[in-house]
Amino acid sequence: MNCFEARQEFPALWRKTATPERSAEVYSHLKGCAKCDHAFRVFALSAPVLHSAVEPERNAAEFRRRVAYRAQRGLSVTRPAREPRRLLAMCAGMMVLFAASTAAYLSVAAPIGSYTDEITNSDSGYEFPVDTAPTSNDFAG
């Protein structure tokens, strides 16, 4: 038996469905192969759930009664209803986004007239103060 064949037999070994001869072969291989022996020990940690027959609960009559009762009334089981957490978070996020964008819009809204209009339109009434108005000397060299 090679390593691949031995490892293929691990589930059957665990479930005790392998023939005695086959089981003996696997055990004999494990004794002589350190890698497969280690692989078996790693396998053994998850096997009680993954490879064993889990015992179902005994009270079949009670189970049937509860299913029939709830199914006929269109009820769910006793667990609490699921909270639509994701939906709530999305709604809250959208509200925050809306509020932030509104605030941003109101704070940086453009003036009614543009800056060019302001300085070119003679009707605007705006004039540079004489002492601060730029002269041609200001732009020289």
């Binding site: 609960e57 189970f63 299913v67 199914a71 269109g74 089981v77 006793t78 667990r79």
Partner: peptide, 14 residues
């Protein structure tokens, strides 16, 4: 596990 099994049967029924 039992609750989920029950829920499964109820869904199947409906």
């Amino acid at each position: 596990a039992r609750d989920l099994a029950q829920e499964g049967f109820i869904r199947a029924y409906t």
